[in-house]
């Protein structure tokens, strides 16, 4: 009697263990399908690039507002902003970007002189190929993702601010609340799901284009093959990946 009981008990134990194992394999297999995480190999097929068409921008500031909401950008700091250039008849350059143009622009900056040329230039992180911000980070918290987006590891950053100093474009800031460096991520959380970055999505004039530079048929490559473009501060050797169509020499 005792023996049989024991045998039954062992049997029961074996079956239930097997059951749990098989069941959990199923369960895990299922969740694996549910979560959309691209594998490292998948990511290597991408090289995210960006185009700013300055000839199309109307300075409405939609992108700045969209970015602020999407990324909870703290008050007084910007992951993207829009600059306005006004060049007068006597060749004087007026530049401004009131509150990063989050409310757009209203009055002319040049009040007295006659403006002969004016245009808007949206700015954001260039996700440089040779990014000085990554080079100088003492703990390796600034890094390049396999799909070539420059990101900050918020769990690892010590908040020294060296990267803020090293970026020639002024796109980084220290998030005072979190004590870590912060900047444009190209809406990494969105592009992973195939969604456009918030700024691209919100631009009513299609002045912002993003896409995969490794894909020869992507829109971004088509535009880059058709149009002439410039880079910001190319002399600094940062090799930026944000291409500016219709870039004026006054823009730095």
């Amino acid at each position: 009697m005792e023996k049989i009981e024991r045998r039954q008990f062992i049997k029961l134990g074996l079956f239930s263990t097997a059951g749990i194992l098989v069941g959990s394999f199923f369960a895990f297999a299922k969740t694996e399908k549910d979560i959309e995480v691209n594998s490292y190999e998948d990511l290597l097929k991408f090289d995210w690039g960006y185009i700013v068409d300055t000839t199309r921008c109307i300075g409405c500031g939609s992108c700045v507002r969209a970015c602020k909401v999407e990324n909870e950008v703290p008050e007084g700091y910007f992951r993207t902003w829009v600059e306005r250039f006004e060049i007068t008849k006597d060749e004087t350059v007026y530049v401004d970007s009131p509150k990063g143009a989050i409310e757009g622009f209203n009055r002319d900056n040049a009040q007295t002189a006659e403006i002969v040329k004016a245009f808007f230039v949206p700015k954001l992180c260039n996700h440089c190929y040779d990014a000085p911000c990554i080079q100088v980070c003492p703990v390796g918290a600034s890094y390049r993702s396999p799909d070539k987006v420059v990101l900050v590891d918020k769990e690892h950053c010590v908040g020294c601010g060296y990267c803020v100093q090293a970026c020639p474009y002024g796109v980084r800031y220290i998030n005072e609340e979190k004590g870590v460096a912060d900047k444009c991520t190209l809406c990494y959380h969105r592009i992973q799901k195939g969604l456009a970055p918030a700024c691209v999505n919100s631009c009513p004039r299609n002045a912002r284009i993003y896409g995969n530079l490794k894909d020869p048929n992507s829109e971004i490559n088509k535009v880059l093959h058709q149009r002439r473009y410039g880079l910001l501060k190319p002399d600094l050797g940062t090799n930026p990946k944000c291409f500016y169509i219709g870039l004026d020499k006054e823009v730095k």
């Binding site: 700091y77 910007f78 902003w81 600059e83 004087t92 350059v93 007026y94 530049v95 401004d96 970007s97 509150k99 990063g100 900056n109 040049a110 700015k123 474009y169 002024g170 796109v171 980084r172 800031y173």
Partner: peptide, 8 residues
């Protein structure tokens, strides 16, 4: 003429 600095 304008004293322009980046917003950050």
């Amino acid at each position: 003429l304008s004293n322009y600095i980046f917003p950050n």
